[in-house]
Design a protein around this nucleic acid. Structure first.
Lengths: 295, 295
DNA sequence: CGAAAGCTGTATCAGAAATTTCAGAATGTG
DNA sequence: CACATTCTGAAATTTCTGATACAGCTTTCG
């Protein structure tokens, strides 16, 4: 019904043609029912669903071949081969250069707030990486890759979420992983069984939280290895920590940014997964099997 | 020709052929000159060079179409379509399942690993920002700044931690904020009081989680506004979402990176805090006072 | 309730793409 | 140097895929 004015649908300052998937999402409302089924199939298995034959696509989408053809025509392609070519090129571009999409120039004032915030965060990430001693990072990877050790994650009000994020990944990669709530009442009892072979990974940035510090000090006193992810001003936990990874957190906001901590966390997860691959793979497969009830 | 018997070449106790590329490298010596040219082309643009037509492949490799056919036949495929199907499946498996991203050859590179990981994440952040429609971002800020609305955060296995992170900040900035666990049993009861003035902010990236989808669909049916933070391939929640903010998540890891989602989250927190500053400031001060007193 | 418009699938066709054939070129061998 | 073997590509062949026309059906609007 609408969509008569097709000329001004792209007035926003866009860099390069966004993913076809994004365009499909934008136009989704204007699609006919069978076109929607095609779109959903494509988006749910993007872009592989579109790389086979028309007949295959039609069958999987539950529509007829001509409907598929009409769908790709509506998207502006000259024909199905054209459409496939676009998918292949897009896929290749995305796969070969994850960084290629970063366009250097600061383009128009799209979302000044968002863009400048992003630039600040990116600056933090670069600064974080430059100030991490490679040996320290490696040492932490080694500690977290030791299957004999038990690993406990913890954090403060805000950083507790990061600790959870770390825990949810490491839990799959290896065994002996858990999360400890920051409140003393919740961990006091557990401390009896914390010893030399335990590792505490603590997240703590300024407005350092006393209960987290207390937890780490207690654990350290019992011989546990403490790994600390903090800001460049260092949480007091640094005094008892064996390894410290500082991340820059300043942002044009009333709040600090935890992106640097997340970066370190994800890099650690990646490195440990790689190092423990032989044992991590079966675990991940098992998890996948357990999840995959439907398909 | 090797004396170990070339006909039953699958005598090796391999789990499953890891990659066609690897097999090609192993057999490279036994190829004829034109087969080598085909192999070289395929490996240098693996696997995209093989996804076009036979004629295109032949032309790019500088050989004839029949030579290409002989090449794929020699690799054990029934024909060119067979060969392509294998490539597609291999590629899809590699891209969709973090399990297949194994890179067994390169190992033990501490700092470079962190640095290149950071570069990839930075690329994601830039790509994310560029693909966010400013109006969409602003619209979400407006929704989250409306004091009359009740805001609920939720997420999946991994993204749940991000939802918590968001909630822990918004809880301080404004009132009427809470976190909903993903499991249906935990939110079913709550749904009775979800209505038009409620906002669901859902985090969901691929390996989309059915329970989160169900939660959002239920909420949407009751008139709630759904805001979705997802990946560029869009969670099925997008169908019922009023606003969608996609973030790029690909990383040189067996896992996806949530840094883009965190960036969006923090940017939203910053923007909403600024917009609600008159009411947020007293709240933040109050929280500060409360913390100072207790331990 | 009726008519018009739009959507979708069946049947069919045109054409492109993969495959096979076969003769000539290249390579190795006695 | 001649022969045998292998390799390669042009052209013929066949298969199969993408595209189209048309008719039935559903939805929308008067």
């Amino acid at each position: 019904m609408n969509q008569s004015g097709m000329r001004d649908d792209r007035r926003l300052p866009r860099a390069d043609p966004p993913s076809l998937a994004e365009r499909i999402r934008l136009e989704m409302d204007a699609f006919t029912p069978s076109e929607k089924r095609a779109a959903h199939l494509l988006l749910s298995h993007y872009p592989f669903a579109g790389l086979g034959t028309v007949a295959e696509f039609a069958s999987r989408a539950g529509i007829s071949a001509p409907s598929v053809l009409r769908f790709v025509t509506r998207l502006g392609f000259g024909g199905f081969p054209d459409f496939q070519k676009h998918l292949r090129e897009e896929l290749e571009a995305q796969l070969l250069s994850p960084l290629a999409k970063a366009s250097p120039s600061d383009k128009g004032q799209g979302a000044p707030a968002l863009a400048s915030f992003a630039e600040a965060v990116i600056g933090n990430l670069r600064a974080t990486v430059e100030n991490i001693a490679p040996a320290e990072f490696e040492a932490v990877v080694a500690v977290l890759s030791d299957p004999r050790r038990h690993i406990h994650f913890t954090g403060g009000r805000f950083t507790g979420a990061l600790a959870r994020y770390a825990e949810s990944h490491f839990r799959i990669v290896r065994s002996q992983v858990d999360f400890i709530e920051g409140q003393p009442a919740l961990w006091r009892d557990r401390m009896i069984e914390i010893g030399k072979k335990d590792v505490i990974v603590a997240f703590d940035i300024r407005r350092y939280q006393e209960d987290v510090t207390a937890l780490c000090e207690t654990a350290a006193r019992q011989g546990a290895t403490v790994v600390l992810l903090t800001d460049p001003w260092l949480s007091p936990i640094a005094r008892v920590a064996r390894h410290v990874l500082p991340a820059h957190i300043a942002a044009p906001s009333n709040w600090d940014s935890s992106a640097g901590l997340l970066l370190l966390t994800e890099a650690l997860v990646a490195a440990v997964t790689k190092r423990l691959w032989d044992t991590a793979k079966p675990r991940m497969e098992a998890v996948e099997r357990l999840r995959g009830g439907t398909s």
